[in-house]
Design a protein around this nucleic acid. Structure first.
Lengths: 193, 193
DNA sequence: TTAATTTTGAAACGATCATTTCATTAAGAT
DNA sequence: ATCTTAATGAAATGATCGTTTCAAAATTAA
């Protein structure tokens, strides 16, 4: 066995994520990626195949990073309401920390490409399914604990919450007033209990 | 006075809107616009200046069309709850009729360009301001009529509704199940009364 | 009819697009 | 040391990008 991949693939993906996130898929050029990753143009094609397949890998990386971070954050919460508040708190912090006002990579990509690129559409469908399943689980627990009402099924509430999160991400692009956003989140969650 | 503008500017804008809506700004080429408008490349530049300024005009046209349609729809409603339901009903119909699953041009553009193009950012800020003012007015009326509660100020509820609408538009890109969306809308509105 | 002005067509602009090619350099395995 | 494979660099691919140019055709007011 000869020379093995020497560059840090994770670091490269992080750098690529940053550009795609800031400029969008169509707004990002291969030159942008060469500059951001400090990788050779040939190396990008050797290691990632094409702009689109590199982007798909970026999306997966972004998704699993988010999931990991969320899992860590929720590890020590055993109350469904606290869990739900923590979830929204994470998105809020993401908005408040986002100096470039880029919004959410996945939401942005859905709006840019879901109706154009079948691979993206599939990714978004499974992302939606997973997100709703996760939210449904939390709501279901809350309903078992009698913390959340049963006016709607857990699945119905999960779709509502999923939609609210997308709305929050969109709103956060232009509005980063912490007080207003916190109030908005409280209003979203109020219907649950 | 010699030759006057012969083509139908409104029709041209409608055709251009269709392409921009389907492909996004960065995904739309000048050739796409030439094909869609049946206008000469030179004529486009003579009449609209540049791709970006044509897009700005498309955005304004889309916005004012939506406002006009909404005004007509709401003309005969004098109950704040009915008005609010009609507003959401309009967005729902837009989703159900959207065969290409394009979502909302304005929401898409906000996610694609608000952080990159100052002209777009300004447009989106005034669009948000107007939308919230309109919603605030309806909520305020409902609160006067004692139909809506006063747990939050009309302005706070307006931001919540504005955010919910953006979420609905994003959700509608992949989900066009009428029953689920209707249920989602009911959940959104329930907090108001 | 003439003068004014716009639309049109076609070509060209230089820049940039995503991708490919290939010879050179580098490094682990035998 | 040598074989094997990967990373690199630089150049080139052909296509397409947004925009400009300009002469010819078209239209209307004077």
């Amino acid at each position: 066995m000869p020379k093995v991949e020497t560059f840090d693939r994770k670091q490269v993906l992080q750098n690529a994520t940053e550009v795609f996130h800031k400029k969008g898929y169509n707004g990002t050029s291969m030159q942008d990626l060469v500059d951001a990753t400090n990788l050779n143009r040939s190396s990008i094609y050797n290691s990632f195949g094409s702009k689109l397949s590199m982007f798909m890998e970026v999306l997966s990386y972004y998704q699993s990073s988010g999931k990991a971070e969320m899992g860590k954050e929720l590890a020590h919460s055993h109350n469904a309401l606290d869990t739900m508040k923590l979830i929204f708190e994470m998105y809020l912090n993401d908005i408040l920390d986002d100096k470039d006002r880029k919004g959410c990579l996945i939401v942005n990509c859905k709006s840019e490409m879901a109706n154009q690129e079948p691979l993206i559409k599939s990714f978004m469908e499974q992302n939606q399914e997973q997100s709703i399943a996760m939210l449904e689980d939390v709501v279901h627990n809350g309903q078992m604990e009698k913390i959340f009402n049963e006016d709607q099924t857990a699945n119905q509430y999960a779709l509502y919450l999923y939609s609210s999160i997308q709305g929050l991400r969109m709103t956060g692009i232009l509005n980063n007033n912490e007080e207003e956003l916190r109030n908005l989140i409280n209003t979203v969650l109020k219907v649950l209990y």
